[in-house]
């Protein structure tokens, strides 16, 4: 694909956006894994929410 004399600027723009989006995806996935691990560790110590299947009713 020939993108002309400014191809470097075009590829740099798309590449940087791709990296930023990948960074965001990695952030949410790693964060989710960390929180789930923390909840699992707490549950293993017998510390769990009163209504773990708590579902429907007000939940604070």
């Amino acid at each position: 694909m020939d993108l002309g004399p400014h191809a470097g600027f075009i590829w740099a723009s798309y590449g940087l956006c791709l990296l930023t989006v990948l960074g965001l995806i990695a952030w949410v996935r790693i964060d989710k894994a960390q929180q789930e691990k923390a909840l699992k560790d707490l549950a293993a110590r017998g510390i769990a929410r009163a209504r773990s299947a708590g579902e429907g009713k007000a939940d604070s």
Partner: peptide, 26 residues
């Protein structure tokens, strides 16, 4: 993409607050 990431990040934040509340309770 924004809505996908926002929903995922909100889910994480809810889980983070659950972890915090459980740790405080413990």
């Amino acid at each position: 993409l924004f809505f996908v990431l926002h929903l995922m990040a909100m889910r994480n934040e809810i889980l983070r607050r659950r972890v915090r509340a459980l740790r405080l309770r413990a």
